[in-house]
Design a protein around this nucleic acid. Structure first.
Length: 328
DNA sequence: ACTAAGTTGCGTCATTATCG
DNA sequence: CGATAATGACGCAACTTAGT
């Protein structure tokens, strides 16, 4: 993307590392003119007497370098090209295993949609933790979100007025109460501590109480008519989602404005779906990036040392040569 | 102790890369 | 080619540090 590493020149550290870990070595060896240290790399002279590496598929390399690099790939290639001491980024399976083990130990506010079965009395909320929020740092109120996804048949309708708090009894007891859902409280955005400023317009928080008395929250997109009525939404537990996930879908949309709202709602739903996964992905990406930077720093240190040694060697050879020339 | 600037980590969205 | 993963950029909040 804009400002991404691939925008920079080829000799930037990131680009050098990206897919072509030999580049740093190339720089060093070009400077010191000691090509023998490059294993398996043909070296020849350019027009000006410089020693340069001849790359059989330089075009391909350029193409690769012009792409956005992947920290995972870069680091793995660095690791495989360099000493085996450099730790590779673990494979997906290991990552997944690690994540799973974390998920089994994380507190209940980080419920996931992953296959790990929640206790029967718990209602898993996908893509967003309910309150209470983690105490470590004050959380953005936008993070108090749940998931809704439009689809499927109906079971119960409820028409409510803006600002009103309602309780919704499950139409099908098997659908909800067996999953621990006892009550649903619906309040308008802007009310209460949870629905703070970051709540997107046109959404509201649905709060429901679990069997164990703990509370869960999901955000539900709504449109409010000029008369102050919330457009009817179905609230149900769909079979396509993990048990306990509550969804809301609109009915009776006709006007262009409503269509626009609907498309915005769909967009929000799509984002909501991705939110949790992307949160995890961002964490992983940052971790990889840090690892990659560390790796590069190590590399720089090694190459600096190598450079020093070579300079010293050159100096001593020069002295030796001068001394020999004098004696002759 | 207070404060402003800098740093760090996080979540989110948009975009790009990759996979099936 | 659509779905998903990976990544950059942005904003926010907490933390750190230096100056007063």
């Amino acid at each position: 993307m804009d400002g991404s590493i691939d925008d920079k020149s080829e000799d930037s550290p990131s680009s050098s590392g990206s897919s072509q870990p030999q580049n740093l070595s190339t720089v060093v060896h070009t400077i010191t003119a000691v090509p023998t240290a490059i294993p398996n790399q043909p070296v020849e002279e350019d027009g000006e007497g410089h020693l340069v590496r001849t790359d059989p598929d330089i075009e391909k390399r350029r193409e690769i370098l012009s792409r956005r690099p992947s920290y995972r790939k870069i680091l793995n290639e660095l690791s495989s090209a360099e000493a085996p001491g450099i730790a590779k980024i673990e494979e997906d399976k290991e990552e997944e295993a690690a994540i799973t083990s974390i998920q089994t130990t994380i507190p209940s506010y980080v419920q996931t949609s992953e296959p790990t079965e929640p206790p029967s009395h718990q209602l898993p909320i996908i893509y967003g933790p309910p309150v209470p929020l983690p105490p470590a740092r004050m959380q953005d109120s936008s993070k108090v979100r749940g998931i809704g996804d439009a689809s499927q048949d109906s079971s119960s309708y409820k028409k409510v007025t803006a600002g009103q708090t309602i309780q919704i009894a499950a139409a099908n007891q098997n659908e909800l109460t067996t999953q621990g859902l006892q009550t649903i409280t619906m309040t308008n955005a802007g009310q209460g501590a949870v629905t703070a400023a970051a709540m997107p317009a046109g959404t509201t928080i649905v709060q429901y109480t679990q069997g164990d008395g703990s509370q869960q929250f999901v955000t539900v997109p709504v449109s409010i008519s000029p008369a102050g009525e919330v457009q009817a939404y179905q609230i149900r537990a769909p079979s396509s989602l993990p048990a306990g996930v509550v969804m809301a879908t609109p009915t009776g949309i006709t006007s262009p404005q409503q269509l626009a709202e609907e498309s915005a709602r769909k967009r929000e739903l799509r984002l909501m779906k991705n939110r949790y996964k992307n949160r995890e992905a961002a964490r992983e990406c940052r971790r990889r990036k840090k690892e990659y930077v560390k790796c590069l720093e190590t590399r720089v240190a090694v190459l600096e040392q190598q450079n020093k040694t070579l300079i010293e060697e050159l100096k001593s050879l020069k002295e030796l040569y001068c001394h020999k020339a004098e004696t002759e």
